[in-house]
Design a protein around this nucleic acid. Structure first.
Lengths: 235, 235
DNA sequence: CTTTTGTAAATTGTAAACAGGCTTCATGAT
DNA sequence: ATCATGAAGCCTGTTTACAATTTACAAAAG
């Protein structure tokens, strides 16, 4: 038997199916603002736009509801989820609980190969010219980092709970307007510190660090929302 | 405008659709053991059994996957989820994180009408003759109580995360063999104590109580699984 | 005898047509 | 003028039919 060095993934990577493309397309449209909050998502229209039948559309809308980007009501259809100030509190309180567990589990169970992705992101971030780092790029780095952290926890159910929140966090990260000058520095320092606590396996330090990390993000978001209050929230 | 005292629910209760019946039927079959862990769930077979087409079956299987009772693989179909010792750790660690947040939020936000369901369950439990309380009944009381606690937290996203775990917890509650004689007493005392801490709004006491509560349940489960180890776990 | 390869059956993914509920707007009554 | 009533159109829920993929098994090659 030949050793499989070419077919890279040891885990056979489940085939991609139409629904996956539809999910990506609609998620992208929502996150980029092409589909505003509250917009009705009519299955037939989406089916024609994306050139598939209503079946995959239906499944995709169901999945996006899981992600919290879409709200579905029986016999009344799906709409792009709207976000109120209460939702911000919900998202960040739940996120804190999940990330606390994640970093705790990561401290206990993460191996070197689990930490590699985290450090790779930090390196990639640092090696990217500052002028090339857009707000969207920062948001993607951020989500990717925390996603890797959740993966490092080796906790399937926790990861799935995070999947139900991830896109909603992304919405807020993309909302940010101009970032403070020293933000990129502090971003790297903050996340590098998280990796350090995990590497050290110091649960107490790690949970404290993550709570401050998420708390800080929440606080900055509230400040930002307060500045242009009543702009793109509930309505 | 007439006041609506007859059409009871203030919230318009979304209509029940075929998928809901299918979900209930399959969930019931899994929880009752009629569908053993690992069993393949073939859409056509289920469709014939339940006398609906494959459409609602497909949606139901997706939803049951959300609940963690079913595992779905692309082009390979759905199977009843199997449970390993690792899964027990996952379920209880995540449950602890979620319930901690739930009781904390309940302390802050629960009103008298939120606490009423909790107390109603305690009363119903106490007023039920001991000989009528089967293991299944205890499990249902238990799930209903904690479900009411999550509702009292007024946190939609937290409740949805709990929905993704609830049935999996139920699986373990139903596994219990004969309960200790004083279990029913301690059950009531323990849960009444949780309500008391919420009513008092004492976050510190409440989180401590819930952690001990879930921790105790986890510990008892591990003891039980150790007794007949290698019986009905991974298979 | 073991391994490989090809073919057929089984089963899921997708499309398209049908049925029924919800919304809207016109019409009429109070 | 305001509110009730009802019919038409839109849209979702469901069914049925078709396409594509996986799995199982058998035949052939080593």
């Amino acid at each position: 038997m030949e050793d499989n060095s070419i077919d890279q993934p040891v885990q056979p990577r489940r085939r991609r199916v139409l629904m996956d493309d539809v999910v990506d397309a609609i998620r992208e449209a929502i996150l980029s603002g092409k589909l505003a909050a509250g917009t009705r998502l009519i299955e037939d229209d989406l089916a024609q736009m994306l050139d598939v039948s209503r079946g995959p559309i239906r499944q995709a809308l169901f999945k996006l509801q899981q992600e919290g980007l879409v709200v579905h009501e029986t016999h009344r259809g799906a709409t792009v989820a709207t976000t109120s100030p209460d939702d911000v509190a919900e998202i960040y309180s739940l996120r804190t609980a999940l990330e606390r567990l994640a970093i705790e589990q990561a401290c206990k169970k993460a191996t070197a190969s689990d930490l590699a992705p985290l450090e790779a992101i930090l390196l990639l971030f640092q090696s990217t010219p500052r002028e090339n780092i857009t707000r969207k790029k920062v948001a993607e780095f951020d989500i990717d980092f925390h996603d890797a952290l959740f993966r490092a926890a080796h906790h399937r159910r926790l990861y799935r709970a995070w999947e139900g929140l991830r896109s909603q966090v992304m919405v807020f990260l993309l909302l940010r307007d101009a970032l403070p000058d020293d933000y990129l520095d502090s971003w790297h320092r903050d996340h590098a510190n998280l990796v350090a606590t995990v590497r050290a396996g110091d649960v107490a330090a790690a949970t404290a660090a993550i709570e401050e990390h998420i708390g800080g993000a929440h606080a900055r978001l509230l400040v930002m929302l307060a500045k242009d209050s009543g702009h793109s929230t509930t309505d």
